[in-house]
């Protein structure tokens, strides 16, 4: 039961708002991560904690796309198919994922590892096509790198189960040319995706390398943040 296992976190969340009802989205995220998806029992439990009518919470789960009311894979793969992604390789990426996993959109692979979804704009259009795995951005995925990505995600399945599908401990990744999946350091200079430039190349901006390992800050957040 959530109240027994996560009482402190729940009290912190509810304490942020003038009305407990405001805590419904964060609590649903929590329940989704604890139970894997939002079963009817899980939704009723959240309604009970916040003393809300059950139908209201069911309505919320139905409205928002990041709540999954049926079982999903260990990794939710969500690919943006909006303009401009759809003209910059999103369709090819989705086809490659479908072929590799032998599934269609909204289905889960036979081993229960991946669920594939088409989603609307993920707000990283400069890195098109864009993919999120359990709400971690994974940049620079091309059809050729799909196998390497899936292999990496399979090897991190234990990590995914611990962190859940709601992105409460999300990090961003990029796939290198060699197919290695690397963490995007927050201290690193911002890099938009660059294509081959016609004409004179732009002058590179000299930015000194970060002095501190970015991992240190992140680890601290994980301990401090209840959510």
């Amino acid at each position: 039961m959530l109240l027994e296992t996560h009482r402190e976190a729940i009290e912190t969340i509810v304490g942020r708002y003038a009305s407990p009802r405001s805590a419904v989205l964060p609590l649903l995220y929590l329940a989704q991560d604890v139970y894997g998806h939002l079963s009817n029992a899980a939704i009723r439990e959240v309604a009970g904690i916040l003393a809300l009518p059950e139908t209201d919470v069911f309505e919320v789960v139905g409205f928002y796309t990041l709540f999954y009311s049926r079982p999903v894979g260990t990794w939710m793969l969500q690919v943006c198919d909006d303009v401009p992604c759809c003209y910059l390789g999103a369709e090819e990426l989705i086809t490659a994922l479908k072929d590799s996993l032998q599934i269609k959109e909204e289905q889960t692979s036979a081993d229960g590892m991946f669920t594939l979804q088409r989603v609307k704009c993920l707000a990283a259009c400069d890195r098109a096509p864009v993919l999120q795995a359990n709400l971690d951005y994974v940049y620079d995925v091309t059809p050729e790198k799909v196998e390497a990505l899936l292999k990496d995600l399979r090897s991190r399945a234990a990590d995914a189960r611990r962190r859940g599908v709601s992105g409460r401990f999300a990090e961003d990744f990029a796939v290198t040319e060699q197919g290695a999946v690397e963490l995007v350091a927050r201290d690193a200079p911002y890099q938009s995706r660059q294509f081959e430039v016609q004409g004179p190349p732009p002058p590179p901006e000299p930015i000194p390398p970060p002095e501190v390992e970015s991992g240190q800050d992140r680890a601290e957040t994980r301990r401090a943040s209840p959510l």
């Binding site: 989205l25 709400l135 971690d136 992140r218």
Partner: peptide, 17 residues
């Protein structure tokens, strides 16, 4: 924040801390 900005939300929470 939109739900998909999960990592950015953590960055912001850390900075707020």
């Amino acid at each position: 924040m939109r739900g998909e900005f999960a990592a950015a939300a953590l960055t912001l929470e850390q900075a707020i801390d």
